[in-house]
Structure formats: C-alpha cells, structure tokens
C-alpha cells in the first residue's frame, strides 16, 4: 500500500510542476515525472502475481505478468521521444525569445506579432 501512496504523491508532484512552474524545462521535468510514476505503477503491480522474470528456462515458478513489461517498454520509448521533442521546442523558444519563462516568452512573442 505504501508504494502506491508514494506513487500517487510522485504523480501529484509532477502534475504540480507542470501547472505551477513557469520555467518550461521544469514543466518538461514534470511531464517526465508523471510518466514515470504511471510506468512504475504498471510494472510494480504487474509483478504481484509472481516473482520470477518472464524468461522461460524450464521449471521456473510463477512469473511476473510479461504484458505490462512489454507495454511499458513502448510507453517509455514514447515518453523519451516526447521529452526529446519538447526539449528541442524549449531550445528553439529560448533562441527566439531569450527566456525559459513561459509568461515572458508569451509576452515577447505577442509584442513581436
């Protein structure tokens, strides 16, 4: 139970970072944190039904559910890609507006337009 509560807390921290922080890099951190919390939750709970790794070398006991592991592999890679793209956008925003603060960026772009 305690792990799940901690993961919920982790999720809320990430969501708070996305909403409240003005720095766009910290927002991207937040996005990574919420993604990580869901991935950990999925893997953790999927291993409640067995302790062995799902690699079938004869005569092993009940394994962890392999489906969450395969799904999360996909989700992690997608998360990395989204992060890479958002960081590239952040760099580009910094180059054009000279700031990482979302409000400042917005103001400068509006002034320009």
């Amino acid at each position: 139970m305690i792990e799940r509560i901690l993961l919920l807390v982790l999720f809320m921290i990430g969501f708070w970072a996305i909403m409240a922080h003005r720095n766009i890099i910290k927002k991207i951190f937040g996005l990574n944190i919420i993604n990580a919390s869901v991935v950990i939750l999925f893997i953790l709970e999927g291993s409640r039904i067995g302790n062995e790794v799902p690699i079938m070398y004869g005569g092993i006991g009940p394994t962890a559910d392999p489906i969450p592991q395969a799904l999360m592999l996909t989700a992690i890679v997608i998360g990395v890609c989204v992060t890479a793209l958002s960081l590239a956008l952040a760099v580009h925003l910094y180059r054009t507006s000279g700031s990482f603060d979302i409000d400042v960026i917005k103001r400068r772009i509006q002034d320009e337009a």
Binding site: I18, V38, F42, L89, T96, A113
Partner: peptide, 23 residues
Amino acid sequence: AGASLASFSYLMVSASAMVFFLL
C-alpha cells in the same frame, strides 16, 4: 512567431493527457 509556443503548449497538454489515458 509563436508557432513553436503553440506547439509546445499543445504538446504539454496533450502529452499529459496521454499519461492519464495510460493510467
């Protein structure tokens, strides 16, 4: 000007929403 900011806002909102979808 502003297209990358628009894209960034969209990315943040929709990528977070996709984490909710995953959950």
